[in-house]
Design a protein around this nucleic acid. Structure first.
Length: 746
DNA sequence: CCCCTTCTCATTTTT
DNA sequence: TGAGAAGGGG
């Protein structure tokens, strides 16, 4: 079936079609996980273009580069020969940066401003506080930085930031103002600025808002539940009451509350845009029935939600598998083994499998276990490449080429590799800059003229400045060539190579340096804007997840946040323990727990065919062993969705041993988890390999076995498969793998 | 000014 | 347990 504009709508259901064909005015599309919302958005854009709407009058906003890229590709595919050029499909942050390149002069910046990340912000903050006579340890700086972030997410400036009381060593308002001043002096914007500054400009300069309203007649927003106040301000400035604002979201998948996202935005949308049409997508095309039932069952425990009932025409499929390992290593090894089973016996490939977790560090044991079984895997983690020291060093030089006033970069680069400019010299340089009210780069010649620097440090600064100056001069060569020379001349390359020598093979610091130059060359060849500034911006806004190649036939390891928007035939979620997932910091906080539960919902709904949930009875945190209770989310699973042999066969709850288990008794909200799930039993076909020495078991201890009931340990045989000889109360003595029993009092 | 040792403290989640 | 900070000696 094709509509008048010639876009094929035959693959769409009635609601999807209604959304695609929606005419003018605001619309809220509530789209549950796996209900085909991206299909709707892309079809809608294609249809608009086909029916004569100027591509340049369409703006589609996403939260991640990956989502933007995917949307662009799918629209291009739908349009076929039609040229989608002129369409703006962008992340909020990239669009904000673009906007500020053009209008940043109103805020004292040039087109070449630098985007400051968290670490850069902390550097600026340190200077701001020190100016006011305050100093904080790293922890305080981090907390203060977060406060600034929070203020900006809420649509305000750093002056409005309220750091935790214990860290308010100077007046927060003054510190915030100083912070903003230093940011301007450094010709820099932080991440928050990329959102809040455009929003403010649009609100304060009506002509500007008019101009963009006239340009973008059609605005589409993906993952609307993740918008924060500043982003919503921005949208409201861009799209007035009766505008063609098309927002898509799922309140149950709002997992960025900690970053200022407000579920309220989606809940309030129909009131904010009165008369907005509301459509619901509830048919799921992704997951088999039992998986969907599990996800629905868990999320139903949340109170603050619009309420949706996902359904599917798919068969029930196979039930969920659960596994409780003795410790984290055992969990990892079992998961690695189970993945092997999926691949050997059930026709899945490693690339079909994802292992999701609450936090990045939880993947460490699994990486080891996968390496040992020879299973290919990729860890998709934040910005691990760009966080490496040698990479940050190179970036500091590149930043200075584009923006010499970038003081944070200057501080790092001026003495890397060491050229005799130590702390004292930098302090003098800094003092001169403060006195003159300028950047370090501008202050340096003055400091030398004034005799602030002498001897080695003076020579070091002079050669550094000279080197930068020559590399920055446009001599007709492409920037990548000048950069190549600069990195060699500066000694960075040599330093990286030296470091490689001292280490085991494969460290490859020098390789990383060249990799950046290669990337820059590629950028110069292929990007629409080949400038070094554009390269830096792209690098700053991109994350590993955007770059990761998930089609490479390897098991994917990532956080649940990173997995949002993805789907896999086989999904493992590990660490289902109170204090891990839900995270310790959410325990006892109602809204916090609800966000954790939404996170769990996101995790479960990534799976198409198979879903395996695991936990460890004990886990080492901070070098100390913790016995974590089973996650409440496990007890919220509908039993029908779980493979019966994993279901609890509990001893009376009152007699369960509760050894140091999270949560603590004085925490009223947290005592709740049903103790019964503490005994989700083990799969007899798999050994959890836990506790090579028999773990915590000693002769005389009481234990519980899912099948044989209570018993007393007689002997402990350690080895790769620790075995206990147990005298069971009912049936007498048996030899049992230690992983199949748990401690028990009674 | 630089390097080495000792000590502390930390783990959410990311544009 | 590990990384980064702080402090002391060369």
């Amino acid at each position: 079936m094709k509509d008048a504009a010639g876009v094929d709508l035959s693959g769409l259901n009635a609601v999807q079609r209604a959304a695609v064909l929606h005419d003018e005015g605001p619309l809220l599309l509530l789209a549950g996980a796996g209900t085909g919302k991206t299909r709707v958005v892309t079809h809608r854009i294609a249809r608009l273009v086909r029916s004569g709407v100027q591509p340049s009058s369409i703006l589609a906003l996403t939260f991640t580069n990956k989502a933007a890229r995917e949307m662009r590709e799918r629209v291009a595919a739908l349009l076929g020969e039609h040229d989608p050029a002129g369409l703006t499909i962008s992340t909020f942050h990239a669009l904000g940066a673009r906007f500020l390149r053009e209008h940043g002069t109103a805020l004292g910046r040039t087109r070449n401003f630098t985007i400051y990340d968290d670490d850069d912000q902390i550097g600026v903050l340190r200077e701001a506080l020190s100016y006011l006579g305050g100093a904080l340890p790293a922890k305080g700086l981090k907390a203060w930085r977060r406060a600034i972030d929070t203020a900006k997410n809420a649509g305000q400036g750093a002056e409005s930031a309220t750091p935790p009381l214990e860290w308010a060593v100077v007046d927060p308002g003054l510190a915030g103002a100083r912070y903003e001043l230093l940011m301007e002096r450094a010709n820099a914007f932080d991440f928050g600025d990329l959102i809040v500054r455009p929003a403010q400009l649009l609100q304060e300069v009506p002509a500007l808002a008019d101009r963009y309203r006239a340009r973008w007649r059609w605005v589409l927003v993906d993952e609307f539940q993740d918008t924060n106040a500043a982003q919503y301000d921005w949208l409201k400035a861009l799209a007035p009451q009766d505008a063609n604002l098309f927002v898509v979201g799922d309140d149950d998948q709002s997992i960025y509350g900690w970053r200022g996202a407000e579920v309220e935005n989606i809940l309030q949308f129909p009131h904010e845009y009165r008369g907005a049409r509301v459509l619901r997508l509830e048919q799921n095309y992704r997951s088999d029935g039992h998986i969907l039932a599990a996800a629905n069952g868990v999320i139903a425990h949340n109170e603050r939600r619009l309420g949706k009932a996902l359904w599917s025409e798919r068969a029930d499929g196979l039930r969920l598998e659960l596994f409780a390992a003795h410790d984290a290593r055992g969990e990892a090894r079992w998961v690695a083994e189970r993945i092997r089973g999926f691949c050997r016996e059930e026709g899945f490939a490693p690339g079909d499998v994802a292992v999701l977790m609450r936090a990045n560090h939880l993947s460490l044991d699994l990486e080891e276990a996968l390496a040992q079984t020879g299973t290919p895997y990729v860890v998709v983690r934040g910005r691990s490449f760009y966080d490496r020291a040698e990479v940050r060093d190179v970036m500091a030089y590149l930043r200075l080429l584009v923006n010499p006033n970038d003081d944070v970069a200057f501080r790092r680069a001026v003495n890397t590799p060491t050229r005799g400019v130590g702390r004292t010299s930098l302090e003098r340089l800094g003092a001169r800059a403060v006195a003159l009210g300028c950047s370090l780069h501008v202050a340096a010649p003055a400091a030398i003229a004034a005799g602030d620097l002498r001897g080695r440090s003076r020579a070091g600064v002079e050669s550094f400045m000279d080197m930068l100056d020559r590399a920055g001069r446009d001599d007709g060569r492409p920037a990548s060539e000048r950069v190549r020379a600069l990195l060699t001349e500066s000694g960075l390359v040599l330093e990286a190579a030296d470091d490689d020598l001292g280490r085991e093979s494969g460290e490859g610091r020098e390789g990383n340096v060249w990799r950046l130059v290669d990337a820059l060359e590629t950028h110069e060849r292929e990007a629409a804007d080949p400038s070094l500034a554009a390269y830096l911006e792209q690098v700053r806004l991109v994350s590993d997840i955007d770059l990761a190649d998930l089609s490479g036939g390897a098991v994917s390891l990532m956080t649940i946040h990173a997995a949002k928007g993805l789907e896999f035939p086989v999904v493992f979620v590990l660490g289902l323990e109170e204090g891990v997932f839900p995270n310790a910091r959410a325990l006892g906080d109602g809204e916090g727990i609800e966000e954790e539960r939404r996170l769990c919902y996101v995790a479960l709904t990534r799976a198409r065919r198979r879903l395996v949930l695991t936990r460890a009875r004990q886990r080492n945190t901070f070098g100390e062993t913790r016995h974590n209770a089973s996650s409440r989310f496990l007890s919220e699973l509908p039993p029908e969705a779980v493979e019966p042999r994993y279901l609890p066969e509990p001893p009376p709850a009152s007699r369960l041993r509760r050894s140091g288990a999270w949560p603590h008794a004085h925490d009223p909200v947290a005592v709740a988890p049903a103790p019964s799930t503490d005994e989700l039993c083990t799969d007899p076909t798999y050994d959890d390999f836990g506790g090579a020495d028999g773990g915590a078991y000693r002769p005389g201890m009481r234990v519980w076995h899912a099948q044989f009931g209570a018993g007393r340990v007689q002997r402990v045989a350690s080895g790769t498969r620790p075995t206990l000889t147990i005298d069971f109360d009912e049936i007498g003595e048996r030899k049992i793998l230690a992983s199949f029993v748990s401690p028990y009092e009674g």
